[in-house]
Computed example of a mutant assay.
Amino acid sequence: MPLPFRLSLPSPRTRRLLWRGLLVAGVGLPLVLTLLFRLLPPPGTPLMLIRAAQGYGLEKDWQPLDAISPHLRRAVIASEDGKFCTHRGFDWDAIGTAFDRLGSGRPLIGGSTISMQTAKNLYLWPGRTFLRKGLEAYLTVYLETLWPKRRILETYLNIVEFGPGLYGAEAAARHYFRKPAAALTAREAALLAALLPDPLDRNPLHPGPALSRHVARIDARADQVRLGTDGACGTG
């Protein structure tokens, strides 16, 4: 019995138009959003939506970099990306170490700079697939090309996850320490920075021995981080 309809592939011209549309979207949309978010706070991130759907809630309060304690800026750089002010988005030594781990059969972890984490948090979903990492690297180039380091650090500190439903330094400081992010001490900043690799399972108010040792290392390294006159990596 003949089928009432027949499926047909798009014509070569239609396929070319589709590919061009995908290319324009893949290049143009990140470009437009990155330029827009250089000037305006992003309204949210994919991770915020995912966590909210999982029932974690959503607390965030965007603050300019000058309203975030220098202690926290130094602690996060010391903890997450010691070469933040000198690289162009990628720490190739750290990436090499991460792939050495993968080659020895261990999970692919580490190697992400603050710039890469900002791109991931701003645009992408959580995960460790090669596709996601490839998109992360692609979007990192946009951020490093179009934003100054100050804006990258400012955005990271405002959108990064600090706990269940907690995003950004201000929400974390008020939730855990009942104070604004501007008033964080060096110890409190190190405690918050220590949450970043595993914010859902760590609590700065009740650090165990391993977390306490990690906090002490961050605190010591933060003393070596020198911020520029712009509050990040450059001159104001």
Rank of each mutant, 00 (worst) to 15 (best):
R20Q: 13
G21D: 00
G21N: 02
L22D: 00
V24M: 09
A25R: 02
V27Y: 02
L31H: 02
V32K: 01
L35Y: 02
L35F: 04
L36E: 04
R38K: 15
L39V: 04
L39Q: 08
L40Y: 14
P41E: 12
P41Y: 07
P41H: 09
P42L: 09
P42G: 05
P43M: 05
G44F: 11
T45V: 05
T45C: 05
P46H: 02
P46A: 00
P46K: 01
M48D: 12
M48E: 14
I50P: 04
R51T: 03
A53D: 09
G55C: 11
G55Y: 03
G55L: 10
Y56F: 13
Q63V: 15
Q63K: 15
D66A: 15
A67V: 06
I68R: 12
I68H: 10
S69N: 13
S69A: 15
H71F: 11
L72K: 07
L72V: 12
R74M: 12
A75W: 08
A75Q: 11
V76L: 10
I77M: 15
A78D: 14
E80N: 08
D81A: 09
D81K: 06
G82I: 09
F84H: 03
C85H: 01
C85Y: 00
C85N: 01
C85I: 06
T86D: 05
T86Q: 12
H87Y: 06
H87Q: 13
F90A: 08
W92L: 15
W92T: 00
D93E: 15
I95C: 08
I95Y: 08
G96Y: 04
G96K: 13
